[in-house]
């Protein structure tokens, strides 16, 4: 059987030393490395997830901002349009009132001119009539003379307004 106590002890020491040595040079560093790596991978994945989440959040924010800007733009445009409409409306109304005023003024002017003319005519006519009547009264009147007189007065009155 080869019973051999020193051999047995030698092998026990052998194996125990190997176990101790491997614990320090193999198992401990390798397991530490494996743990470190899984820790690192976990951290990296977490970080990647966080970054992704952040970027998604940022994208959302940008989108929201764009949306807000667009809405603002829309309101501004709407306001501008309204304002323009109002301005145009006002301008139109102003123009209309101006035109009406001008027309009214023109009309009143015309009226006044006509009134003046009528007044002047009336006045001229009266004077003329007086002149004619003076002449009639101052001369003996026969029929032909009468007729010619009237014609003269009328002839004069024609040029009268032109003076």
């Amino acid at each position: 059987m080869g019973i051999n106590l020193p051999g047995l002890i030698a092998q026990i020491i052998n194996f125990s030393l190997l176990m101790l040595a491997l614990y320090f040079i193999l198992y401990k560093p390798v397991l530490k490395m494996l743990d470190q790596r899984s820790q690192k991978i976990k951290e990296s994945l977490d970080q990647a997830e966080r970054v992704q989440k952040e970027s998604a959040q940022a994208g959302e924010q940008v989108k929201a901002q764009i949306e807000a800007a667009r809405a603002e733009g829309r309101t501004i445009v709407g306001q501008a349009t309204q304002l323009a409409e109002k301005v145009r409306e006002e301008a139109r109304a102003q123009a209309r009132t101006d035109a009406e005023a001008i027309i009214a003024r023109a009309r009143s002017e015309v009226q006044r001119e006509r009134d003046d003319a009528v007044e002047q005519l009336r006045r001229e006519f009266a004077a003329l009539t007086i002149v004619a009547a003076e002449r009639v009264i101052n001369k003996s009147l026969d029929a032909r003379e009468h007729q010619r007189l009237i014609d003269d007065v009328l002839q004069d009155s024609k040029t009268f307004g032109k003076n």
Binding site: Q11, F15, S16
Partner: peptide, 12 residues
């Protein structure tokens, strides 16, 4: 193939 070696492993 030596009993002493396998026995040593078993004892430890």
């Amino acid at each position: 193939t030596d009993l002493m070696n396998t026995l040593a492993l078993a004892l430890v």
